[in-house]
Write a protein that binds this DNA or RNA. Structure first.
Length: 542
RNA sequence: UGGGCUGUGGCCAAGUGGUUAAGGCACCGGACUUUGACUCCGGGAUCGAUGGUUCGACUCCAUCCAGCCCAGCCA
């Protein structure tokens, strides 16, 4: 199930040769959006790597940019991470360390490793050079530590306008690695911070803040995605020059990207704003909240993430692979009957007001789950697609005119007549049942042409079934604008019947021969709504 | 074209000098079946390319090709 991976190998070696006694990891989201399946890789792997190696895991919000962040996102993320079954030892914020970061910046300045720059943002960009040409040094680069100290304090105290000055690390303007060309490490930003309110006017940049956060917490292995590989030299530089005691090691891995899934913030926002989806928790989205609402068990996500590994490559994983883990996590769901697209069957030779209660296993594969009583009477609903007038080929294992099938757990029925309305649509099947074929009676005289499920015609509950499809068509096609690629039929609501049982939001079932479904939160006294979590696999081809 | 990284069957992914090149998903056969489900059997790659080192290379070296990332006072 769990694959080996290069980070695990590194960790095991660090443990073996005594570099670390415990492994401490963290998940450091910026609270500026919602978590999705891709983030689950980082969350679960970080957690797993730590706790399975005698260590622990921290949840730390990287809230160094107040203009983008909000407390509603931290709340949402906390809920999602809890739901994933991931337990953090400490719940922290980068902003918890702003004082420490400020003090370390002073250390840098005193050592002549950082300076206050008066260049404008545009000028800094010009001075930085480009991929082919080295940058040139800022004219303010050689200010004395004393002057820098004063200027930096003034920045902190609000003597300067936003954007008028920055603190920069003094590294190498000619480095082929752009990140090392005197990166900005502090900027002035008069913005309300969700945690520190208006205490600070200056905020540290990611490249400066992150290594300090990791070092303060004693993070041993700081996992991040591939695009930060170029930042590693800077990460190491900050840890060293700021004289941090702990030396965390940054290791980069490939993000989890699901094929044909919308995860980009602005695209999801567009879908939400245009009402193409219900919200960020729409079951068609792979946001953690969307998956949760749809009914996906968190264990499916964990198993999928662990199986999918922690690679150094950047590929796209097919959704079918995830489906497999979802199905696997639902094998113990109660298996009941639901007719998603009903077709009425009248059993003409069945006594009018008679009702039989059949004993049915809740889950054939888990007898300990017991049985329940399923009603059967003169009128039943079957799936419209389980009937066809003429048997098309020998492979058709369902009902057809003059054919006989078994209604699972009940009797064989034979279709004798079709009733149609004026448009030609079939409205009812007249059938007869054979009393001798009752399930459990041991009848073996003849074989039915298949087994189909049913729901009693009167003892049932009407329900809405939401069936989902890809949100976006032609996903890879870059020539079609996003708005035109939205699949208008990504949500289809069907109206049918389920067994008359108790249904609570998020209850999960297997609807025999249909798929796995969960009760949606839109359910109320008036309506019962189910989401299709994942269909059953099927070899049947029309 | 400066720098960093990646390239194993349709997809994911182990393997790091000697294995018949794991495993999973998908797919195709077949068995079983009161879910065309589940389960169970069986099926496919010579490892981006080309050279080299070696008794022996997916694993080492060189060159080439392809893809991804970097020029925010975002993370």
């Amino acid at each position: 199930m769990e694959t080996s991976n290069f980070i695990k190998t590194i960790i095991e070696e660090d443990l073996k040769n005594g570099k670390h006694k415990e492994i401490i990891t963290r998940f450091p989201p910026e609270p500026n959006g919602f978590l999705h399946l891709g983030h689950a890789r980082s969350i679960i792997q970080n957690y797993h790597l730590a706790v399975s190696n005698n260590g622990y895991f921290n949840l730390r919000f990287d809230d160094t940019n107040p203009v983008k962040e909000d407390t509603v996102f931290v709340e949402g993320m906390i809920e999602d991470i809890k739901w994933l079954g991931v337990k953090w030892k400490n719940l922290l914020f980068a902003s918890d360390y702003f004082d420490e970061m400020y003090n370390r910046a002073i250390v840098l300045i005193k050592k002549g490793k950082a300076f206050v720059d008066d260049l404008s943002a545009e000028e800094i960009r010009e001075y930085r050079g480009d991929l082919k040409n080295p940058g040139k040094e800022s004219p303010y680069r050689n200010r004395t530590p004393e002057e820098n100290l004063e200027l930096f304090e003034n920045m902190k105290n609000g003597l300067y306008e936003d954007g008028s000055r920055v603190l920069r690390a003094k590294i190498d303007m000619a480095s082929p690695n752009m990140n090392l060309r005197d990166p900005v490490i502090y900027r002035i930003q008069r913005a309300y911070h969700h945690n520190t309110q208006d205490k600070w006017l200056i905020y540290p940049m990611y490249d400066y803040a992150h290594p300090i956060e990791d070092a303060i917490e004693g993070i041993t292995h700081s996992l991040c995605s591939l695009e930060f590989e170029d930042h590693r030299p800077l990460y190491d530089w900050v840890v060293k020059e700021c004289e941090m005691e702990n030396v965390p090691r940054q290791i980069e891995f490939g993000k989890l990207i699901m094929a044909k899934q919308v995860t980009g913030k602005r695209y999801i926002k567009q879908l939400v704003d245009s009402k193409a989806v219900i919200g960020w928790d729409d079951p068609r989205l792979i946001t953690i909240s969307g998956l949760r609402r749809k009914g996906v068990p968190s264990q499916a996500i964990t198993n999928f993430i662990l199986a999918t590994g922690l690679p150094k490559t950047q590929g796209e994983t097919e959704y079918e692979m995830f489906d497999k883990y979802v199905r696997e996590s639902l094998v113990e769901a109660k298996r009941i009957n639901a007719v998603v697209d009903p077709l009425l069957v009248e059993i003409t030779n069945y006594e009018d007001s008679k009702v039989e209660y059949l004993d049915v296993e809740n889950n054939r594969d888990f007898p300990e789950m017991g049985t329940r009583k399923v009603p059967f009477s003169k009128y039943v609903y079957i799936e419209r697609e389980d009937f066809i007038e003429e048997k098309p080929n020998k492979k058709w294992k369902r009902l057809y005119l003059n054919g006989e099938v078994r209604l699972m757990h009940a009797y064989f029925i034979k279709a004798n007549e079709i009733i149609k309305d004026e448009t030609g649509k079939i409205t009812k099947i007249l059938a007869t049942y054979d009393e001798l074929t009752k399930s459990g009676s041991g009848f073996t005289e003849r074989k039915p042409n298949g087994n189909i499920h049913f729901v009693d015609g009167t003892i049932n509950k009407p329900a809405t079934f939401r069936i989902f499809d890809d949100l976006v068509l032609d996903f890879e096609n870059k020539d079609i604008p996003f708005s035109e690629k939205i699949n208008k039929n990504s949500l289809v609501e069907k109206h049918g019947f389920v067994e008359a049982l108790e249904y609570n939001v998020l209850d999960r079932f297997q609807f025999a021969r249909n798929g796995y479904f969960a009760v949606d939160q839109d359910t109320n006294e008036e309506k019962l709504v189910f989401n299709e979590i994942v269909s059953l696999k099927s070899k049947f081809k029309r």
